Computed example of a mutant assay.
Amino acid sequence: MVFTAHAAHLLTPDPAFLKFLWTGVDLFFVISGFVFAPLLLSGGFAIRAYAIRRVFRLYPLYLVSLPLYYLIAPESAEKFVYLLKHLLFLGTTSGAHEAFFFNPAYWSLPVEVEYYLLLPLLARLVAGRFWVVLGLFAIFCCLRFGIVLGATPFAVPEPNWLAILRVHLPGILIEFLVGVFVYVAHQHWLGSAQRSQALLAGLMGLVLWLALGLFFARHGDQGIGVHLWLKAYFSLLCAIGYGLMLFGLLGLMRCEDGWCRMSAFFLGNLSYGVYLFHILVLRLYAQSGLSLPGVVAFIACALSVLALAMLGHHLVEHPARTFGRRLASRYAPVRRDSR
């Protein structure tokens, strides 16, 4: 979805609705919240093993992609400083120019890292109590509104600190928590014969998503910006739409057979590489001077991105994650035999 949003200009001079697919990043936050919900609700876990797995999941392919973007980035007096800050996931701490200098898609990675760092503390705070999650959601919804109310645009030369917080965890935690709600709801209705509930939720999410997409296609960012509530919660509404659709799909598709699980793992394995490398391919195509027909250019770029993602997964991601799991297993708590 994010690739399509960034490559939409290849398909049509008026992308409109296709640009709305940038909200795929909101889906990413929801899925991340869903995946880590068991840890959040666990009351505590082995932090060292968890940290090792996270480092070897996130860093290796990122460290491969960053020098490639450095090579094709325009010359700037601040270029090397930007590189150092990106290495520490601090590239979104001063403004849009730095955040988007190498790869606009990088902006979401610091948020993910912050969630990883906060998760052990959140797990102890929540301690399995769902009402605490609801309380956190309410608090951060209010915080999000206050941040947006006082924030300058992130793209201005010197955005204020509220604009910075808006693209970090204080402004985005609520989207991760939507994924937690989906996980809890799915566990509650797991095995239920009432598939109509899942279908209804999925349809509600689809209707909400389409309504938001059509609004964006007609009014764009400016239309969102003139309405304070939409400006504050447009991304959250997108996340809720994705959460409802995710809940619906989980209820309707058991995905217990071989082909379904294999397809899901295959796509999951490629997703991070696609996210990291798609801007690289689009920029190289733009710099190449080639003038392919729009649809052909889109397909060629998409296939190139997939090829890079597959290569990155097999040569970097999979070996690094395997090593990380082995290393983390040394620090995982040993369960005693109940006998």
Rank of each mutant, 00 (worst) to 15 (best):
V305F: 02
P159H: 03
F17A: 06
S271E: 12
V132M: 07
R124N: 06
V184N: 01
V167G: 08
S32M: 05
W229M: 09
L280A: 01
V182Y: 06
L149S: 15
L190W: 09
P319G: 09
E256W: 05
R254D: 11
V148K: 13
A155M: 13
F137L: 09
S304D: 03
Y70C: 05
H186Q: 10
L250F: 10
P333H: 04
S329G: 06
R336M: 14
G205C: 09
V35F: 01
G205A: 08
C238W: 08
W22M: 03
F45E: 01
W189L: 11
L63N: 07
I172D: 05
F265V: 15
V133F: 04
L136N: 05
V148P: 11
I164G: 10
P153Q: 08
V296E: 15
T322M: 14
L136R: 03
Y116R: 05
L208N: 08
F154R: 04
Q197E: 14
V113T: 07
K19M: 00
S338R: 15
F215M: 05
R321Y: 13
S271L: 09
G91N: 15
L303G: 14
L284V: 00
G241K: 08
H9G: 13
L228A: 13
A332L: 14
F36R: 02
A105N: 08
V184E: 08
F247V: 03
N160G: 07
L284A: 01
N269I: 12
F154Q: 05
M204P: 02
R54K: 12
L282G: 00
H6G: 00
L267A: 15
V167M: 07
S42A: 08
V207C: 13
L118Y: 03
M262Q: 15
G179E: 05
F247D: 01
L21Q: 00
G223A: 05
G220H: 06
A163D: 06
M253D: 13
G205Q: 08
S329I: 07
V111C: 10
F216V: 02
Y272V: 09
V274T: 13
A201E: 09
R339A: 10
K79P: 06
L84V: 08
P170N: 03
C301K: 09
I47G: 00
V64M: 09
Y106N: 00
F45V: 01
F277A: 00
T92H: 11
A49E: 11
N103H: 01
C141V: 13
H9E: 12
S288P: 10
K231Q: 14
L250N: 06
G146H: 05
P67M: 04
L41K: 01
L311E: 09
P120M: 01
E175A: 07
C255P: 04
L149W: 15
A73C: 11
T152A: 15
T12G: 02
S192T: 12
T93E: 13
A328T: 06
L303P: 12
H9Q: 14
E78S: 14
E98N: 08
L246Y: 07
Q222P: 04
C238I: 08
A307Q: 11
V81I: 13
V25P: 01
L88H: 05
W107E: 05
L237D: 00
G150A: 08
E112M: 07
V30K: 04
I72D: 02
V133H: 06
P67R: 06
F20K: 00
L270K: 09
R144F: 09
L162P: 02
S196R: 15
